[in-house]
Simulated scan of single mutants.
Amino acid sequence: MHNTSCLRLCLTIMTVTGVWLPTALKSSHLRHIYYIFAFMYHLLFVLPIIFMEFAVFYQVLGNIEQMVDTSLLLVTHIAQCVKVCVMWYKQDEIHSLLMTLDSPTFTREDSNKKQILKDVIQTTYTVSKVFISLVVVTGIFWGIYPMLKPTLCLPIQYPNIPPEYKIFPIVYLYQIVNITLMGIAIASIDFLVGALMAILSAQMDILSYELSLVGKINNKDDNANTDIRQDYLIIISCVKFHENIIKFVKDLEKIFGFPVFFQFLTSAIIICETAFRITDSTETTELITMMFYFMCVNTELLMYCYYGDLLKRKSERVVEMAYCCNWENADVRMQRALLLLMQRAQRTLVLRAGNMFELSMMTFSAILRTSYSYFTVLNERRKLKG
Rank of each mutant, 00 (worst) to 15 (best):
I132E: 07
N355H: 11
Q157A: 04
L351R: 06
D251W: 04
I206K: 04
T289G: 03
Y232M: 12
M361P: 01
F262V: 15
I49F: 08
S5M: 12
V193R: 07
D221E: 11
V319A: 07
V127L: 13
T17D: 04
G62V: 04
I170A: 09
T17I: 01
D69Y: 08
C6F: 03
G386L: 02
G308E: 03
M197T: 06
I50R: 03
L97V: 05
R344Y: 05
S208A: 10
C324D: 15
L25V: 01
Y89K: 14
D222H: 13
T138V: 00
Y35A: 10
D331Q: 08
Y172S: 02
T180E: 04
I156S: 02
L338D: 02
L43R: 03
T289M: 01
S373G: 10
I245C: 01
G215M: 00
M291P: 02
F57T: 15
H29T: 13
S365V: 12
G215R: 05
Y293N: 01
S5Y: 11
R333N: 14
A55Y: 10
T370C: 02
I121Y: 07
V136E: 02
V120A: 13
E320W: 11
L98M: 07
K240L: 14
E93L: 03
T226P: 05
R277A: 10
P162G: 02
T105I: 14
E300W: 01
A202Q: 04
M67W: 06
F51A: 14
G257P: 07
Q66I: 00
A345F: 06
L97D: 04
E273H: 12
S188K: 09
Y323Q: 08
N355V: 00
S5W: 09
H2D: 15
L196G: 02
Y125H: 14
D221K: 02
V84I: 15
I167T: 08
M99F: 12
R381A: 12
L101S: 00
I49R: 05
N160R: 14
M40G: 09
N63I: 08
D92A: 14
Y125W: 14
I116K: 07
M342Y: 01
L25E: 06
V56S: 08
T348S: 13
G257M: 08
A187H: 07
S208M: 06
A24Q: 09
V350K: 12
S237G: 13
I288W: 09
F357V: 06
K216S: 07
G183Q: 05
V86A: 10
Y232F: 12
K240I: 13
T289A: 05
P169V: 05
Y209W: 15
L152I: 09
H95S: 08
V214A: 00
A366S: 15
S315W: 07
F258Q: 07
D227S: 15
T289N: 10
E316V: 08
N223E: 11
Q230P: 00
M1V: 09
Q122H: 09
C6H: 08
P146C: 02
E109A: 14
L265C: 15
I36D: 06
M321T: 14
I179G: 06
I64L: 14
I255N: 09
T282C: 08
L74S: 03
T289Y: 10
M334Y: 04
Q122I: 12
N298M: 11
S133A: 14
G62T: 00
P163M: 05
